[in-house]
Amino acid sequence: MLEYALLAGLVFGLYFSLVGLGLNLVFGVMRIVNLAHGDFLMLGAFGAFWLFNLYHLNPIATVFIALAVFGALGVPLYYLLVPRLQRARDPEMLSIILFFGLSQVIEALATVGFGPSERSIPGRVLGSGPVHVLGQTFPAAWMVSAAASALAVLGVYFYLYRTRLGYLTRAVMVHREEALATGIDVHRVSAIAFGAGLALAAIAGVFAPFMLGSATPAMGVDLNIQSFAVIVIGSLGNPLGTVLGGILYGVSLMFMQTYFSSWANLLPYLLLILILLVRPSGLLGRQVRRA
């Protein structure tokens, strides 16, 4: 049971790295809290559901569509919302209120459009039969989702550390005003990061029916809480710290389900409290400042 919980936690944790990655990227670059993150994830899940049902499109193909559509959606949404927020005295607090409102609107529209019930995609679409790993068996869909999550994390790493745009993005993450003073087009960099954040949320959404059983218009709220736990554990503002946060969250969740299953939903809150008390900057907090 112990080995299974550990391995399942690693797999699940990789997925949760992807769930939190976009949220942390947006916070790291813009210092705003996108409380609608979980709702964009939900839209990705419903997108995958409808594309599969209408055109039998494999969710792997939907990943690329989600990347393009939500990436493109993020840029105008950034210019519509974020620069106004950043002119305010307390953009972080205002962003919480604004994106909470946006979250409510998205959920309400999704409920009207899709209905309130759970929707799902058959697990066999991502591979039939269980997969054997180190003597344990896991659903094939889990392994594919975890692999896709790992690829997405590597993609973000490549973007941040191996591209010119990534260097500029990290410069903005370290100090927005200094980046502006050196002539970096901060809004352009931020808009692309915002689009990337939404795209990552939507990609996580594509795999949600496989990892979370189903998708509903209301799923965003729970996912926001879990995403926050993940990024606070890793370190707020450090996208790659999200991986550590995700894995720690995943493993802890599986151990909770094994030994204290009734209390498993307290885990995100317990971890948040623990990290904020012991190491408020997150496990990789120091690296944030160096970016």
Partner: peptide
């Protein structure tokens, strides 16, 4: 028992 919002049962 598990919380009502449980969405992952593979370990269980």
């Amino acid at each position: 028992g598990v919380p009502t919002n449980t969405t992952s049962y593979t370990v269980i």
